[in-house]
Computed example of a mutant assay.
Amino acid sequence: MQKRIRHWWQEFANDVNATLAEVIALEDDAAEALEYQPNVIPGLLQTRDYASAIITTGFNAYGPDQAEALVTVREMRQRLLRDDEPLRYHAIATEAALRFDVGGPAVMREQMRHLNGEMALPNVTFQIVPFSAGRMAAQAAGFAILKFEDTHDPDAAWMEGVGGMIPRDSEREIRLYNRLFAEIASAALSPDETAALLRERAESL
């Protein structure tokens, strides 16, 4: 375990936009995070090479210098999983995230093995929604929900958009995201089944 470093992200003010800074600040105070990603491995479980391949590809691709800084930011966020009072993290991805060849076979093999290692942490739950789950495997947009120890603090939620993360702060929207996450989790493989699938995928690469 390690002591949490407060406000560390201010060091990266030139590389982190206002929305991401808000997410990081709230995440730092959260007791629990729920995240669903349809096509990629959720950020707090990504290896450095996998994160680099994601950040330097697509609509929001960044140049080498900023990409390097953002990969480092992602790694520092991951320390929440090993703090003295670690973040409880329940992440879900679909089987598509295992099949897309992100960064090449070696990167994907390392990522599959890393996931199995992270799942051994008592505060981490990871599930895969198989293609056979039908409509529940076809939820198109990723989203995350943050929950806080003080029950008077409302949940916070974000949806993934083409241009980045979009805050969702109405009570109705957050109730919908909580319900959708529960439905997706119920359609997903169990953690043990997920771990077996990860090992199978790693061996096939």
Rank of each mutant, 00 (worst) to 15 (best):
M1R: 07
M1T: 15
R4Y: 02
R4V: 12
R6M: 13
R6D: 09
W8F: 15
W8T: 00
W8Y: 13
W9I: 05
W9L: 05
Q10Y: 11
E11K: 01
E11L: 08
E11C: 00
F12R: 08
A13E: 12
N14A: 15
D15P: 02
D15C: 08
V16T: 00
V16W: 03
V16S: 04
L20T: 15
V23R: 05
V23D: 03
V23T: 07
L26Q: 10
L26S: 13
D28H: 07
D29F: 00
A30V: 11
A31L: 10
A31Q: 14
E35A: 14
Y36I: 05
Q37E: 15
N39R: 09
V40P: 04
G43T: 11
Q46A: 04
T47F: 01
D49L: 05
S52W: 10
A53K: 03
I54V: 15
I55G: 08
F59W: 15
F59R: 14
F59I: 12
A61I: 10
G63N: 01
P64V: 05
P64I: 03
A67S: 10
T72F: 01
V73C: 02
R74D: 13
E75S: 09
R77Q: 14
R77A: 12
R79M: 14
L80A: 13
L81Y: 01
P86Y: 13
L87S: 06
H90P: 06
A91M: 07
A93Y: 02
A93I: 04
T94S: 11
A97W: 00
G104W: 01
P105S: 07
P105W: 03
R109A: 12
E110C: 03
M112I: 01
H114Q: 15
G117I: 09
G117Y: 07
M119T: 08
M119P: 05
M119E: 02
A120W: 05
A120I: 05
N123E: 10
F126Q: 00
Q127I: 13
I128A: 00
F131R: 09
S132L: 04
A133E: 06
A137P: 07
A138S: 12
Q139H: 09
A141R: 10
G142M: 03
L146T: 00
L146S: 00
F148K: 02
D150K: 12
T151Y: 08
D153H: 08
W158E: 06
M159S: 13
G161S: 15
G161F: 05
V162P: 04
G163F: 09
G164H: 10
M165T: 03
I166T: 09
S170P: 08
S170I: 03
E171T: 11
R172A: 15
I174Q: 05
L176H: 05
L180P: 01
L180K: 13
F181D: 03
F181L: 01
E183Y: 13
A188V: 08
L189T: 04
S190M: 11
P191M: 08
P191Y: 07
T194D: 06
T194H: 09
A195H: 04
A196V: 02
A196Y: 03
L197E: 09
L198D: 02
R199H: 10
E200Q: 14
R201A: 09
R201V: 07
S204N: 07
L205Y: 12
